[in-house]
Nucleic acid binder design. Structure first.
Lengths: 136, 136
DNA sequence: TATAAAGAGGACTAAAATTGTCCTATAAGG
DNA sequence: CCTTATAGGACAATTTTAGTCCTCTTTATA
């Protein structure tokens, strides 16, 4: 069971690259894909989602590419996960738009609702800035 | 993205049923499946995993079935998740037997390792007894 | 203004994981 | 020895995830 899927992983790697040498540059997917060692087309799709979520900005045409649109300290792993792999939930019952027939009579609910929030908080507390920080 | 899969969900429901009216009885899968409203054959497979993990015991033959082999207060949701859907990990790098080529040089690692432990603790802290407790 | 360099977006395929079913074997009670 | 139950493996169906490809649009600039 893994919580962070490949697309989120790829997205995080790309964001870390962008956050690292932050000259305000625009990054072309080809370069990001090479450096992060991930499939280019797939990464592009993934970055498009980050764009829609307002985490990065895209620019078309020559000299185009992707660019952080926020301070890395303000981008959490949760933001990225949700942008890229959808809402985080302990299980189906807690998913937006799905819910559960049985929700109001369910014994499992009460405790798990807390667990879900804890998980959300957890991933909200880790930011790209921290991930990009060099280790000693 | 959901963390608790269907098989774990089914397992939890069955365990809660067993924990509730605890007469030491043995439960036949057919009954559990009906009451929990889950596919019988699939549930049986799932219960076999719980058996191997030592969470329940199986008895064959007439008057056979499944039975809790532990105090429900000593069965955590984590136990069930791991028995039924495998080890819990934030991502592949942290999975037993897989690891990651890049593990020692990875910036993502440090923070996520903490997140993983927090999640484990979280699910370890919720037990079947609590799930089975009637709500007021 | 033509060209080339990007991303946008959709269709599609491939692969993998998950869920579910079925068949035969084995154990055990009456 | 018959019936009830699980064990276990093979298999099928479904869903999710990952990845590719083709065409379109945007835009810098020669």
């Amino acid at each position: 069971m893994e919580l962070i899927r490949r697309n989120t992983d790829y997205a995080l790697r790309a964001l870390v690259l962008m956050a690292k040498d932050r000259t305000g540059d625009v990054y072309v997917v080809t370069r990001l894909a090479n450096e992060a060692r991930v499939p280019e087309d797939f990464l592009r799709k993934t970055l498009q989602r980050l764009d829609k979520a307002g985490i990065i900005e895209s620019k078309r045409g020559p000299k185009g590419g992707f660019q952080l649109s926020k301070d890395p300290a303000r981008i959490s792993v949760l933001d990225v996960m949700e942008a890229v792999q959808g809402p985080l939930a302990v299980n189906r019952c807690f998913l937006k738009d799905i819910g559960c027939d049985n929700f109001n009579r369910c014994e499992l609910k009460e405790k798990l609702i807390g667990a879900q929030q804890d998980m959300v908080d957890l991933f909200k507390s880790v930011t790209i800035r921290e991930l990009a920080a060099e280790r000693g």
